[in-house]
Design a protein around this nucleic acid. Structure first.
Lengths: 206, 206
DNA sequence: GTCTATAAAGTGATAGAC
DNA sequence: GTCTATCACTTTATAGAC
């Protein structure tokens, strides 16, 4: 950001790098990859890649941002006003999709841990993203509560926090054991929190 | 493990190292600490510390094990047969305690990500621990279901998975923003899943 | 804009003295 | 059992050629 190469061409190349990086990491995985590894995969030298980013940490933070951008386009969860069901389905859709891109899940989780440090470039990214995400969830969940399809024993903000925690926590479980059904479990959670579902007939998860 | 120094004295020293490590990491935090840093903190040279462990990864895995051992003793969640309420309260107790040991939360989360790799020494630790934990949860949750204090719309195994995910996911949120009320949110979750709680009077979280 | 080359600082692990 | 010393690498970042 704010680098002198921020002219049209440089920006385009930057975007291209981020998109290629997403692709490569999604396919080939991320295990604390070095700048050099990513550079090789992207077809640049290490120095050539870092020409576009101030540091490794900034580079990987931007990759996460780009991923959100792509996901938002594909699953429409961010800018538009959508129905509560649309938001819920988009959320589940992203989770289902995540099972196909293990490297990105790993990158996200790893960065989430590293960014606990307030001086990490991704710290602000996570804080902002999480609160925006939760606010958006809370709106959708409030609407579901109003329709009687979600418990109102707990306020929507707290439920949003819980929903987000489930999604992140399931990723950790899934990384250890890829047979974990992330999307199915999230759907089960919504069912469990839906007072309009009749008791006593536990449905199968998958 | 299985090192020739497995005589009484060596074992005792090993235990002492692990306990000191827990203490130091809990207090001073863990940000991908090196063996040397930990060695200094524990009062040994790097080589002196590694004399007791085969590798860095094994060392940190053992620290996690020791932590479970300590927590199990303090919050009695593992070996004994306890009431469903005891198990639930122990669980919430551990979570409340975790807010006082940020370094351990960070170590745990970091290792959970790294151990996604099946060849990581902690991989088996996490797989075993998670399934044991979930089995234990499932038992307790089943009992709660039988008493009508927990939804039976979803089977106990899946609920156990959800509960674990919430705990792990909240840790990530809390690391980014320490004002996150992990224990309170978990309690809210149990309330939200309790069909005997009357609707319509959302209680405050904390 | 991209490269090669290199700096500067770690890392985990091991050999060997004591 | 613990230390010092050192090995063999790897890492990010930067300087400077082209």
């Amino acid at each position: 950001m704010a680098r002198r190469g921020s002219y049209a061409k440089g920006v385009a190349k930057r975007e291209e790098i981020l998109e290629r990086s997403l692709d490569v990491i999604a396919r080939e995985g991320y295990r604390g990859a070095s700048v050099k590894e990513l550079a090789d995969a992207v077809g640049l030298s290490q120095a050539g890649l870092l020409h576009y980013f101030d540091s490794k940490e900034e580079l990987f933070t931007e990759i996460l941002r780009k991923r959100d951008e792509v996901d938002a386009r594909a699953y429409g969860g961010s800018s538009e006003v959508v129905s509560p069901d649309g938001l819920r389905d988009g959320f589940v859709g992203v989770i289902r999709h995540n099972a196909d891109v293990p490297g990105l899940v790993q990158l996200y989780s790893r960065m989430a841990v590293d960014a606990a440090d307030t001086s990490h470039p991704a710290h602000r990214y996570f804080v902002d993203r999480n609160s925006a995400l939760r606010a958006s969830f809370a709106d959708g969940l409030r609407a579901l509560q109003a329709e009687g399809r979600l418990t109102d024993v707990v306020d929507a903000e707290t439920l949003a926090r819980i929903v987000q925690a489930v999604a992140d926590g399931l990723q950790l479980q899934w990384m250890q054991d890829p047979s974990t059904d992330m999307a199915g479990t999230v759907e089960a959670m919504f069912r469990a929190l839906d007072p309009s579902v009749p008791a006593g007939d536990p449905k199968e998860t998958s």
